[in-house]
Every structure is written in structure tokens, then in C-alpha cells.
């Protein structure tokens, strides 16, 4: 069996090559994310205090719904031409395929956040990265979304109604992550006591550890016909 990390790297490199060449996912994700941020900014008055209360929600809705678009597209590349079948035929651990794809999705999500964050700051006059801990929350939430998003995009991709299936499967299970992300972001945006964010960070960390372990166990069965 070839080195596990070499296989993860091969899948990651291939996915990023396809994405940087076509820019299919990142373009649609960025356009959708920017539109969401812009449209919500029109609803709220520039000087409104309520902006601070809803900023976290708007930011994460923009990121998560845009991310759903990218996840669907990334798996479609595997289904077209039977490529997923072909990589499953290779003598590598199926979880190496999963983690290669997960890392590629995570890179796309981080790029999306790099695009959305400055625009969001301009439209809402809010600096989301006002505290270094916010970087940790961004990382943990992106990790959780990419992890389960990759899993459910693999599960739903063969379904005829995959566009509807992916959010239907993914969003309910992501509710604790979305809540933790929004509420902890609001603490930093409103300049609240950062101690209040510690519990949310713990929840996000535990969620990620549990689901990373679960995927190691279940993914080989998920991809078996």
C-alpha cells in the first residue's frame, strides 16, 4: 500500500489543479456569497445597532450556502467520466481519497472566506477578525463544514436530486456548528467578553474530533456499492 499521505496529497493536488484551471467552484461560490452579503446590507440601515446582532448570522449564511454550491460541483468532477470509480480501484485507503477531497474543499472554503471577509467589513463596517480567537473559530467552522460537506457530497452525488439532497442531509447535522459559529462570532463583533466564546470553541473542537474519527470508520462502507 502506498504511503497514506502521498495518496492524500495526490488527490488534493489533482482537485486543486482542476479547480484552479476551471475556477468553476470558486467563481460560483464567490458570486453567490457576495450577492448574499450585499443584499442583506441593503436591508439594514447603515447606522443600525441591530447590524451587530445579526452580522454573525449573515456572514455564516453567506459562507455556508456558497460553500454548498462548491461542494456539489467538486463531486460532479468525480462522477463525470466515472473517475470516482477509477480512484476507488487504486490500491489506496478510501479514507485517503476522502481526506484529499476534504482538504481541497477546505482550501476552496478558505479562499471564499478571504474574498468575502473584506467585502463584508466594508458593507457592514464591522471587523470580524477583531480578535485572534476569531481565526480559530473560522478554522474550526470551515473544518466542520468541509468535513461533513465532503462526506454528504459523496453520499448524495449518485442521487438524481443531488442538488436538493446535499443541503437536506448536511444542514440538519450542521446545526450545532452553525449555532456555535454565529453566536461566537457575535460575541467578537459586539465586543463582548471573550470568555463566553470558549464554550463554543470547545463544542466546535469536540464536534470536529468526533466526526473525523467517525469518518475514518464509516467512509470505506459509504463508498462500497
Amino acid at each position: 500500500m502506498i504511503n497514506y499521505f502521498k495518496a492524500v496529497y495526490a488527490i488534493l493536488k489533482k482537485d486543486l489543479m482542476v479547480e484552479f484551471r476551471t475556477k468553476e467552484s470558486i467563481n460560483s461560490m464567490a458570486v453567490f456569497g457576495l450577492l448574499t452579503v450585499t443584499v442583506f446590507s441593503f436591508i439594514l440601515e447603515p447606522s443600525s445597532d441591530s447590524k451587530v446582532e445579526v452580522a454573525g448570522g449573515i456572514f455564516w449564511i453567506a459562507i455556508i450556502f456558497s460553500g454548498l454550491l462548491g461542494l456539489g460541483k467538486s463531486m460532479l468532477n468525480e462522477v463525470n467520466g466515472g473517475n470516482f470509480e477509477a480512484i476507488l480501484l487504486a490500491p489506496i485507503d478510501p479514507t485517503a481519497i476522502f481526506f484529499g477531497k476534504f482538504l481541497a474543499n477546505m482550501v476552496s472554503m478558505i479562499l471564499l472566506e478571504i474574498i468575502i471577509l473584506p467585502i463584508f467589513s466594508v458593507f457592514y463596517s464591522i471587523n470580524i477578525l477583531s480578535h485572534p480567537l476569531m481565526l480559530l473559530i473560522l478554522f474550526l467552522t470551515t473544518y466542520a463544514f468541509s468535513l461533513l460537506g465532503t462526506l454528504f457530497s459523496v453520499i448524495s452525488v449518485k442521487s438524481r436530486s443531488r442538488e436538493a439532497m446535499l443541503p437536506l442531509l448536511l444542514l440538519p447535522i450542521l446545526i450545532p456548528v452553525i449555532l456555535a459559529a454565529i453566536l461566537s462570532t457575535n460575541i467578537f463583533v459586539a465586543g463582548g467578553d471573550i470568555v463566553g466564546s470558549y464554550n463554543w470553541i470547545k463544542i466546535l473542537s469536540v464536534f470536529n474530533i468526533i466526526f473525523t474519527a467517525v469518518i475514518f470508520v464509516i467512509f470505506p462502507s459509504v463508498v462500497e456499492e
Binding site: R21, T22, N77, G81, L89
Partner: peptide, 17 residues
Amino acid sequence: KRRLGVISHQPFLYENL
């Protein structure tokens, strides 16, 4: 799997590579 090669009516190739 290492000893096996499969040719299908599907190309098993990424069209954007």
C-alpha cells in the same frame, strides 16, 4: 488492486486535466 487494470466504457479520465 495493484495487480488489476480496468478498462470500462467510461473513460476514467478528468476532462479538465
